[in-house]
Simulated scan of single mutants.
Amino acid sequence: MTEHTGRAPAAKPFLYVVVCAAGIAQDVGRLIAAAQERGWEVGVIATPQGLGFFDAEAVGARTGRPIRSAWRAPGEARPFPAPDAVAVAPATFNTVNKWAAGISDTLALGTLCEAYGLGVPIAVLPCVSDALAAHPAYRASLDRLRGMGVRFGDRYSGEPDADGRRAEFRWERVLDLLAART
């Protein structure tokens, strides 16, 4: 059995991908494809607002599982096995700050808060503008989450550079961060 899930390892490890409401979320299929190529089974949990930022039907078809965004009813079967790891990409200012404060008012945040308590490895790709990243609450949240062992990739602002180009969002980086933990 694995230490953090209390279950026998499956043929493939199971990755929860938490998706937040950021424009770049429309490309989350790239992360799912990369994770599957690396041998992960994937289940997607979206924040309520994040659900509208990507093609849920296409993502569900890719994973073979429903997209989760709401709590399940008592007695309802769990649609995903326990996670072996969690990737949060893209992670917004709101999600990072609420998570660090221990707020569990959505399925996505509840999953993140629980994953820490279960010892599940977590990696994050923040998608936060320069203006929001300057806020002291954000910096304090990063410090708290890092202190909890959460690994962070470089922040993506989504803002164009001097030439008007946007940097590429490096989806695979979150998988690299998780690989470094195992």
Rank of each mutant, 00 (worst) to 15 (best):
A115L: 02
C127G: 09
V120M: 03
F169R: 05
F152D: 11
I122M: 14
G39C: 05
G117I: 00
G158A: 09
D163F: 14
H4I: 07
L31H: 09
Q36N: 05
N94C: 08
G149L: 07
G39M: 06
A101I: 02
D55Q: 10
I122H: 03
D105A: 10
A22F: 03
D84P: 02
R30P: 00
D84Q: 07
V18W: 11
V128D: 12
A33D: 14
A82I: 01
E114A: 12
F80C: 07
G23K: 09
P121W: 02
V28C: 14
T2P: 00
F14G: 03
Q36E: 09
F80H: 11
F169E: 04
N97C: 13
V174W: 11
G158S: 10
A77W: 07
Q36C: 05
E37L: 12
D105P: 00
A180D: 14
G23R: 10
L177E: 04
F53E: 06
G50P: 11
A180G: 11
R144M: 05
A25G: 09
D176I: 07
L118F: 01
E172K: 12
L118A: 15
T63Q: 04
V18G: 01
G147Q: 05
D161T: 12
D161H: 15
V17W: 10
T47A: 11
G158I: 07
A82W: 01
L145W: 02
A22S: 14
S69Q: 11
G153W: 09
V128H: 12
V128P: 08
A91I: 05
M1N: 06
D84C: 08
R144K: 14
W40S: 11
G164A: 10
I32K: 05
V59N: 02
G64S: 04
F152C: 12
G6L: 04
A133N: 11
T92C: 11
C20V: 04
F54D: 02
A61K: 15
D84S: 08
E114W: 00
A25S: 13
P74F: 04
P90M: 13
A70D: 09
A89L: 10
L109P: 01
G158W: 06
T92V: 10
G75W: 07
S69L: 02
V19T: 05
L118Q: 15
A91C: 15
F53R: 12
T5E: 03
A100W: 01
G52N: 14
A89R: 12
K98V: 02
P90F: 15
R166K: 15
A91S: 10
R38Y: 00
V150L: 03
R7I: 07
F169T: 03
A21C: 07
D130R: 15
Q36L: 03
V150Y: 02
A77I: 09
A82H: 04
R146T: 13
E159Q: 15
R146G: 08
S157Q: 12
G29Q: 12
G164H: 13
E159R: 14
A134K: 15
D130E: 15
S141R: 12
F54Q: 06
I45Q: 06
G102Y: 04
E76F: 01
V19H: 08
P66Q: 04
R7P: 01
T5K: 07
I67H: 05
G60Y: 01
M1L: 09
A134E: 15
V86Y: 03
T182K: 10
P90T: 13
I45A: 00
